[in-house]
Amino acid sequence: MDVDSMALLAILGMALATYAVRASGFFLVQRLPRSRFLDGFLHHLPGAMFIALVTPPVLSGGPPTWAGALAVVGTAALKIPLLFSLLAGAGTVALLRYLL
């Protein structure tokens, strides 16, 4: 188990920076005065974040990814459990990549 001292320092630095970011959002929001605007911002954040995460990879993914995305959205809309939604999506993508 060899760990270089500079590598260790870098890893600790990165870990500290990442944890500071994680903790600070929660820390700050507890100290901000409640307002309708802040509640609205926090309410809309998850959906906006999910959209921002999926839009570039789905749009640039090509037909197999588009079909996979449809399969996931379709099964999720039918309230099928998450696991099966993921399987349907990954299966569709794999199948179309094989066929195309």
């Binding site: 870098a10 630095g13 990165m14 920076a17 990442t18 959002g25 929660f26």
Partner: peptide, 27 residues
């Protein structure tokens, strides 16, 4: 090599800034 400790720390902190907004939602 040598490991750029400060550059790594800053770059990783910046790339993870979104976590700040995300953890606020967990209030």
């Amino acid at each position: 090599e040598p490991v750029p400790v400060l550059a790594l720390t800053v770059a990783v902190g910046v790339i993870n800034l979104r976590y700040m907004m995300m953890t606020a939602v967990l209030r």
